[in-house]
Computed example of a mutant assay.
Amino acid sequence: MVLIANRLKLACLAAVMMLTGCATSTKTMWTHPPMAIPLQPTIQQQIQLARIDQLMKRDDLDNDTLAQMFYERGLLNDSLGLRDLARLDFNQSLSMRPNQPDVFNILGVYFTQGAHFDAAYEAFDSTLELNFQHPFAQRNRGIALYYGGRLDLAHEDLIVHYQQNVNDPYRVIWLYLVDVERTPEQALDKLRLRYDASDKQDWGWLIVRMYLGDISESDYLKEIASGSESNDQLAERLTEGYFYLAKRYQHEENYSAALMLYKLTLAGNVYEFVEHRFALLETGRVLSQYQAQQQAALQAQTNK
């Protein structure tokens, strides 16, 4: 009953935010925001899943082979948005072969999504102990530390990750998101320096230009829509584009706009992108921040 009550409370709060946002903010009045057809399970994914299920019924498979198959089925379930089933497969794989850095990494991401930050740190530590050159674990640990409020440690991880490839816009973006909360007075200057030092080749630099104010929000969304060559690419770019735009509105304390943009982030069903993975986590954070803002305003009014 408590869980149901909490969900109803959040739903009502979200509805109030959307209504008040529409009434008070001209910046959120997008009549027709760019949208892609939500991604659907492909025939290839479904066939591969059926094949793995069939193969796993054999009784002549050793533990190493089974561990690999559980891992591969977990990846498929994850790509289809079936994260509880994926987590079961990853845990089963790990129980059979415990020295798998990739499994610890994806479980760390799951822990971060669920706001179980201590477990996430341990999972990423395990990944790096098994493979200190893992391409994603340090970034993912930095993101987990960011969400866990440990900004200095997050910066340490993310600055090392950035220095490994200064031409990757997403490394620059996550550093900026940490800087905005850690050293807000310097964040834009640092972002500008990193942008100027890059080759500016990846499309993701458009997001950086939006943060810098070099491109308007309207042109930002138009470029995403016009520059995408297929529906799949449009869905992927909008997942990223809406997420990072939502982060800007959230920082500006425009919570109704941020909430709407996180919903748009989820709309494309691009389950494997970190932006989709963390949009639900951010939605909960937005609702909490809005509630705290309203309570502070009420308290201030009471004290007058």
Rank of each mutant, 00 (worst) to 15 (best):
F104V: 08
H32N: 15
S25M: 10
L94A: 03
N77R: 07
A67Q: 00
A14N: 03
L107R: 02
D53K: 07
S126D: 08
A14W: 05
G21I: 07
F111Y: 12
M96P: 08
T112P: 02
A23Q: 08
L85E: 14
A14P: 06
C22V: 15
A123F: 05
Q113P: 11
I106R: 04
N91T: 09
H116S: 14
G114L: 12
D125L: 04
W30S: 15
M35D: 14
M35F: 15
A36Q: 00
Q40Y: 04
D89Y: 02
R97I: 00
C22I: 08
R83E: 12
G21P: 06
I106M: 05
S126E: 10
N105H: 11
L10T: 06
A23F: 09
Q92A: 15
S25T: 09
F104L: 06
M96A: 05
T24P: 14
N99Y: 02
M17S: 12
D53A: 09
N63Y: 07
W30H: 12
D59P: 08
L55S: 05
D102R: 12
Q100Y: 06
L94I: 02
A36E: 00
A119Q: 13
S93N: 01
A23R: 03
Y71A: 08
M69R: 04
P98G: 12
L19T: 07
P41Y: 08
L82N: 11
D64R: 09
D102C: 07
R58I: 03
A119G: 10
E72K: 10
Y71L: 10
A86V: 06
L39I: 05
L13R: 09
Q68M: 07
D118I: 07
A119N: 09
F90T: 06
E72F: 13
D125A: 14
M17Q: 07
A86L: 01
N63C: 05
D62E: 02
A36T: 02
Y71V: 03
Q44C: 14
T31A: 14
P101R: 01
N77T: 02
Q45K: 13
I106H: 05
